[in-house]
Design a binder for these strands. Structure first.
Lengths: 118, 118
DNA sequence: GCGATAGATTGATGTTTGTCGATGCGGCAG
DNA sequence: CTGCCGCATCGACAAACATCAATCTATCGC
């Protein structure tokens, strides 16, 4: 392939820079990109954002699943599925207390994604 | 549906809080959730993160498409498609100078997404 | 043990998404 | 005008995804 960088002459560089010549210097490697993309994919659904918001609104103690199904307006299996996605992305963590499952925000993962947008 | 909140007694509340009773108070409404989800969806692909990183690395002048196709290792139509997704999400903006198309980061959109993760 | 309940898993289905080859369009050089 | 080059669009296809009904597992109260 022929890049515009290779075509530019010294005169063109002086007059008007044609193309960025320092290509290929990404801020992170491919593995990091895949990892970050996985995190953002978990945030790419309105239902999951709603769930995160509800869980976060319940403070550090977290929220019980039975109180999440109603507000998001989806079936219980669908909510369970979305919570699993959030769990596997490391955005929330769950523990069972007796019959109920409690979810709470995993702050560090959220902050890592936040930092990557700088 | 019966929520655990409705089942808890005063004694249970005192001993161990069972469920978060303040349900339904999300930090943003459904419309915002859809909008944010759209933004994160644009960030949910490694190729697009790579493109953003490359464009950002070229400074405020932005990057020429011909210098992006090589580094990301995808066909030109595929890169064009991803750039369109980023454009429609407001994460980048494009302008054509002669034969070439130049893309640059749209900082404000990125910052809005960043703030929403707080 | 038994029935009821909370939540996860499975299976099926319609939709969305990533990818590429082929094609279209506009600008530049000769 | 003509041919080439950079980029966008189109058409097709496979993979991934969101959703729900049905089912399964584990826990609680009786």
């Amino acid at each position: 392939m022929t890049t515009a960088s290779q075509l530019q002459t010294a005169a063109q560089i002086a007059a008007a820079p044609v193309c960025c010549s320092t290509v290929g210097s990404a801020a992170f490697d491919d593995g990091d990109a895949v990892e970050l993309a996985r995190g953002f994919a978990a945030l790419s659904d309105p239902v999951r954002l709603h769930l995160l918001s509800l869980i976060a609104a319940c403070g550090p103690d977290g929220a019980c699943v039975c109180d999440l199904v109603g507000p998001v307006g989806r079936s219980q299996p669908t909510v369970s599925h979305h919570l699993k996605v959030l769990r596997e992305a490391g955005l929330v963590s769950a523990d069972k207390r007796g019959t109920w499952a409690w979810y709470r925000i995993e702050r560090s993962t959220l902050e890592r994604l936040q930092r990557s947008l700088g």
